[in-house]
Amino acid sequence: MMHPDDAVDDGGEGVELHRSRGNLPLAIICVAAGVMVLGVAVEGSLLRMLVALGVVLIAGRVLVGALRPFRFVIGPEGLDVRRPGLRGTYRWEQFEALAVDESARLVGVPAAGFPPGVRITARHPRDHRPAVELLDLHQVREQPDEVVAALTRWSGGRFTDARTLSAGEFATTTFAFTRGLRGYDMREVDRLVGRAQDALAHGGDAERRAARAEIEQARAAGLEVALRGYDSAQVDAALDALCAALTDTDTPTDRTTPA
């Protein structure tokens, strides 16, 4: 939670976010266990050595990421950021728009004067303009609603909370999941998302119930994990939102036009 001096209505002070370190203990344990296995491995146990080495490399990457310098402050002048790929103060007028998307990522559409060289890795969830991924809200201790309140207060009307889209908007939105090691199988996710969006765009109640049931069954069985796939937290958030939209039958296609 936010500290008392970080409150959103605290006069002119900015709101500083704090990185979540929930994966840090597990990463340390995995690195230590992998090193121990490598230390006792004997000649002829090549498979065990390779598995242990893979565990050390993956856990080491998580460990390094958790220990990197991190700063993210939302204030009256803009965003003060220090994280991999972004470093500096970004003024509000350097963004055409900002949004938290359905995967709980904060993205910003660059405006004139935005520093060059920053990679465009996302899109605005409403109009799909190229955007910069500024922060994954799953990686900070503060609740998304707290972050949204700060952005709404300071950004001068540039911010949109797109986590809760209407059924019609979900039917046409483009999900830009981050790709990385050990993520959900991309083909399976694309199939489930496409099935849900088709039901939202063209289906009736029965089609929407069937699409929701398909998502729920796939998740209950466990989505397939691939060596390279979509970020699991982002996919889980998107599937949660799609299931909610599929449950809501009060959509523009369901309403009867008044006489």
Results as ranks from 00 to 15, higher is better:
residue 4 P to A: 10
residue 13 E to V: 14
residue 18 H to S: 14
residue 19 R to F: 06
residue 23 N to T: 13
residue 27 A to F: 08
residue 28 I to Q: 04
residue 39 G to M: 09
residue 42 V to R: 14
residue 44 G to P: 07
residue 46 L to D: 14
residue 47 L to A: 15
residue 49 M to K: 15
residue 51 V to M: 13
residue 53 L to M: 15
residue 53 L to D: 02
residue 57 L to G: 06
residue 67 L to D: 01
residue 68 R to P: 05
residue 73 V to W: 09
residue 73 V to A: 07
residue 80 D to W: 11
residue 82 R to S: 11
residue 82 R to C: 11
residue 87 R to Q: 14
residue 89 T to S: 12
residue 93 E to D: 14
residue 96 E to L: 12
residue 98 L to T: 04
residue 99 A to S: 06
residue 99 A to T: 05
residue 100 V to A: 02
residue 103 S to V: 00
residue 109 V to C: 02
residue 112 A to N: 12
residue 128 H to D: 15
residue 130 P to D: 09
residue 130 P to Q: 09
residue 132 V to F: 00
residue 135 L to W: 00
residue 137 L to I: 08
residue 139 Q to Y: 04
residue 142 E to C: 00
residue 143 Q to I: 09
residue 144 P to E: 03
residue 154 W to V: 03
residue 155 S to Y: 03
residue 172 T to Q: 11
residue 172 T to N: 06
residue 178 T to A: 15
residue 179 R to S: 13
residue 180 G to Q: 01
residue 191 R to E: 13
residue 192 L to R: 00
residue 196 A to H: 01
residue 200 L to N: 05
residue 208 R to G: 05
residue 209 R to W: 12
residue 212 R to T: 03
residue 212 R to S: 08
residue 213 A to I: 06
residue 216 E to V: 07
residue 216 E to G: 09
residue 228 R to E: 10
residue 229 G to A: 02
residue 236 D to W: 09
residue 237 A to M: 02
residue 237 A to K: 00
residue 241 A to K: 01
residue 242 L to N: 01
residue 245 A to V: 02
residue 248 D to Y: 13
residue 257 T to F: 10
residue 258 P to T: 10
